[in-house]
């Protein structure tokens, strides 16, 4: 057993996907290490599940393994985490700001009676306190938030804000096992009875590249072409509200204030004017805008602007991907 003291630092609740610690959790483990170094705090990866993957990149791993933990469910996870937090009293607890984390974290924070900051885009340590930076008012305001008195200081962090460290080179950690607290009365009230995957194509929150379509896309064929390009680039199709409301693209693809917030490395906006409600959901590293209107607001928010027809652009892009020799184009499946 490790010391209790070692478990009082920074915790990262790790999600598991395809038998591995998922990407946002790795990003958070990397950031936790950086924050921990500032204040001399140890880091702990917290993993709950039926099968526990290989865990790296922290001082300790706190593991609760049980058959009843096969599917993440907020009430059950709240119950388990509540007991772990009460027992070891970490200073900081970070969670990925995906759908599950955004639903679990407030439940847990309320049970613990502590502060929670949603959807952070930057973290820092100052005088022993976690400085949590988050956007509000559709990205028009950034706020630095502290939780001075209550513990743990809790934050959900947007995927792709931090770079995931090299997993193979990450240090091994000391594994500590905890027995499950078991189902409580509340979690017995919810039963997950089925799952319909929306397919890779709708995973817009996780894609590196999004090809997004808006009202100026021109035709259904162009939407299909955008989807094709997204697939070729190893990305996903996104859409602005009018196309979703018009029934041309399913809701799971919608980016913006009434859809999802996305943070891909590259956002290719085709025929999207760039209304503030749409841009509120775009936290991309780089933006390409393709539009026939030079005065469209998106043209000022784009790193690269192409004045022209979306259909012609998409066809040319697809051609470039399908006709260029593989040595020139990236092989997205190789590691």
């Amino acid at each position: 057993m490790g010391t209790y003291e070692g478990l009082q630092g920074i915790w990262v609740l790790c999600g598991v996907r395809d038998g591995q610690i998922d990407r946002v959790s790795r990003e958070l483990l990397g950031e936790a290490e950086r924050l921990g170094a500032v204040e001399g705090m140890k880091t702990t990866a917290v993993v709950l599940g039926r099968e526990i993957p290989q865990i790296r990149g922290a001082d300790h791993a706190l593991v609760v393994q049980d058959d009843s933990l096969s599917v993440p469910e907020e009430l059950r996870w709240t119950h388990e985490l509540y007991h772990l937090v009460r027992r070891y009293r970490p200073q900081v607890l970070l969670l990925g700001a995906n759908g599950f984390g955004r639903s679990l974290a407030p439940r847990l924070a309320a049970r613990l009676g502590t502060g929670l900051t949603a959807d952070c885009t930057a973290l820092d340590m100052r005088d022993g306190l976690l400085v949590q930076t988050r956007p509000a008012f559709g990205g028009n305001l950034m706020a630095d938030i502290l939780c001075p008195d209550a513990r743990p200081q809790m934050a959900t962090v947007r995927p792709r804000v931090f770079r995931a460290p090299d997993w193979e080179a990450a240090r091994p950690c000391e594994i500590l096992r905890e027995p499950p607290a078991g189902p409580d009365t509340l979690s017995r009230l919810v039963e997950i009875t089925g799952f319909t995957p929306s397919g890779q194509d709708a995973a817009i929150g996780e894609a590196d590249i999004l090809v997004a379509v808006g009202q100026g896309i021109g035709s259904k064929e162009n939407i299909a072409m955008a989807e094709k390009l997204a697939e070729l680039m190893g990305g996903a199709l996104a859409a602005s509200r009018p196309l979703v409301d018009g029934g041309l693209v399913p809701y799971a693809h919608q980016v913006g204030q009434t859809g999802r917030t996305v943070a891909p490395r590259l956002y290719i906006a085709c025929g999207i004017s760039g209304a503030i409600q749409h841009l509120a959901g775009v936290a991309a590293e780089k933006v390409v805008a393709v539009n026939i209107d030079p005065d469209a607001p998106i043209m000022e928010r784009a790193n690269w602007a192409i004045l022209g027809d979306c259909g012609a652009f998409l066809r040319e892009m697809v051609d470039l991907y399908t006709t260029s020799p593989p040595s020139v184009l990236p092989d997205r499946h190789s590691k």
Binding site: G115, C147, V288, A302, W304, I306
Partner: peptide, 26 residues
């Protein structure tokens, strides 16, 4: 429990570069 330490307006402007078409973009 949470306190807003400070808030600021982020600079959302970016330097936009005009690109001729798909080939140049690639």
């Amino acid at each position: 429990n949470t306190r807003v330490l400070r808030s600021h307006r982020p600079d959302l402007r970016v330097k936009t570069r005009a690109v001729a078409g798909a080939r140049d973009l690639m």
